[in-house]
Design a protein around this nucleic acid. Structure first.
Lengths: 321, 321
DNA sequence: TTTCCTTATGTGACCGCATACATTAGCAAG
DNA sequence: CTTGCTAATGTATGCGGTCACATAAGGAAA
């Protein structure tokens, strides 16, 4: 329509400086008039880069995961990169299926939550030759890049805090640990702290349940009904901790006088509970940002100074302990 | 490598029945050995369908939005479709930029949160000719398909409940309403209920703030400091309501005896607060599922029976009122 | 004037797959 | 033995861009 070849149009779009003023404005007029939208699919095929990054999380709808997505989105969007999300539902098989599907979609990089993956997942990723970031934990044998913190050390710090406060009868409420390295490591950190203090580890004081407030409440109810009762409870998630805390509040069990409660994650509501929740603050959003920055550098071919970023954690002591 | 043409390989992948047993196994062996991954980018270009749906939400990290994404993901994943997410940050300009970018990526369909969009957004979508679903509210003039509920009616129901409980001095705490039709309509519903009951609407009892628990607490503090004090507060989000409620709890203001509080959304924690929060339950996850189903039908070329799905809401009366 | 750059634009091949059609071989029916 | 059909495979072309290179026009330097 502008009586130029497709190449000239392409140049108007990507390197306008190399096109003569006159032709350019002519082409631009046509582009505007026709509402032309460049086809990134074709472009992707041609340059073998899609500008899409895959992000796999266990579940959308928990801000512990989606805050990370937001962080990555914020960074990647700056360069016009976008995010393909997948929810694995804590299943390694689903994760593998999603990884294969996303590789077929030729994503430029991939973010995985956690460090436990099916062998096929790892193999597929290795064959793809794209940057891979594992987040939220520190793997023994990383696939590629890592942005996380030590769940074990954090849980241990929380438990040691309880011990330092004088509690000796300390229970643990966490999630099912099958395929969930974060929760497994938190449980380990708890156990390590008890062992180091030569405190008794009672199996009936370790409860694995679902990631809901209700489940936390039910777990606390079970602990309170037990004999002996624990004097403190470390919950491997603030979600559980809220349930536990409110269950105490409902029953008139005083926190922390009768039972102390510590959580994990420092979700928004933690500081607003009564009493405010002692917890472990983790850099969810920052993990996303840093993962995004790592990916950006890797895709730009820049040298990656540190392939494993330990962003640490912070024990936030509040009224519940 | 299997001494066949690319076409035969393609057939092995998509219609194995049409390939002779012997050749097929020979090809399959090579596929497995080489770890071949079909290129969906090329496929997309050839068939001009990507199997990707764009989902725009104001913010990742609020389950009110991400639950919907999860619902859509669950449905779409069944057919191997995937989701490209975008966070608009409540900005119409960002939304428009994302819409254009996603159209360039040739997404098969698009989900938008809310019904307020920039003119350029609407125009671009109209030109694209793909299914568009607006969610979370009922638009006056829909772009295409709609899955939502009436925010105005819901807010009105909540406010009428307060009135029926005997409260006459009712305040409103919501979000900034610029570009946010959901919040605007909730505010309208509140006002409509007051007007219908011939109750006074005091401007100083309508607070617009940020979507954080802290902000809800601050708003409540302001209301409590005012003279006269409201006897009930309708919060346009449970996030705000939690802040308001806990602020009362901290100050020893009794809920609902001194001040009643109603929220909106029925987030997970609502039923676990003390007292439990009266709120409006909205079908977040179901909106995602139904949007996914509508999109699936539209893409399959099936006739869409109803282009506007009003999924309704439910007033959940609990202890806070 | 000729030569050589520079600037502006065009050409053709290719990215990996799908579509429509062509080709080949094998076999039953006439 | 043809003819005609079916089953199995191949060929050519296009999707909408990009890349490397070719070409044309104009001006400066020799």
């Amino acid at each position: 329509m502008a009586k130029v070849s497709t190449m000239t149009v392409a140049r108007v779009l990507r390197e306008p400086g190399k096109v003569a003023e006159e032709t350019r404005s002519r082409v631009e007029a046509v582009l505007r008039r026709t509402g032309y939208t460049p086809d990134l699919v074709a472009r992707s095929l041609a340059i073998s880069r899609t500008g899409v990054v895959a992000v796999l999380v266990p579940h959308l709808g928990h801000s512990s995961f989606t805050d990370t997505i937001q962080g990555m989105s914020d960074v990647l969007a700056e360069d016009g990169n976008h995010i393909l999300v997948g929810a694995t539902g804590f299943s390694l098989e689903k994760e593998e299926a999603l990884v294969r599907a996303f590789l077929s979609r030729r994503v430029d990089a991939m973010f995985l939550t956690g460090t436990t993956h099916a062998p096929g997942t790892v193999a597929a990723l290795a064959g793809a030759g794209i940057p891979v970031v594992e987040g939220n934990n520190l793997p023994d044998r990383p696939i590629g890049l890592v942005v996380g913190f030590s769940n074990e050390a954090a849980a241990r710090a929380a438990t040691e805090h309880l011990i330092a406060r004088g509690y000796r009868a300390i229970a643990h409420v966490g999630l099912h640990e099958r395929n969930n390295d974060r929760m497994r490591d938190r449980h380990r950190g708890y156990a390590a702290a008890l062992r180091a203090a030569r405190l008794r580890i009672r199996p009936e004081w370790s409860i694995a349940t679902d990631l809901t407030i209700d489940a936390g409440a039910a777990a606390m109810a079970r602990l309170l009904a037990g004999d002996p009762r624990p004097r403190a409870v470390f919950c491997a998630s603030d979600v559980l901790a809220m349930g536990a805390l409110q269950e105490c509040n409902r029953r008139g069990v005083r926190v922390p006088d009768d039972v102390a409660i510590a959580g994990f994650d420092d979700l928004e509501f933690a500081s607003q509970l009564l009493p405010a929740l002692t917890t472990i603050r983790v850099p969810r959003y920052q993990i996303g940002r840093d993962a995004g920055l790592l990916i950006r550098d890797a895709l730009a071919g820049r040298k990656i100074a540190r392939r494993v970023l330990d962003l640490g954690f912070e024990l936030v002591v509040r009224g519940s302990t």
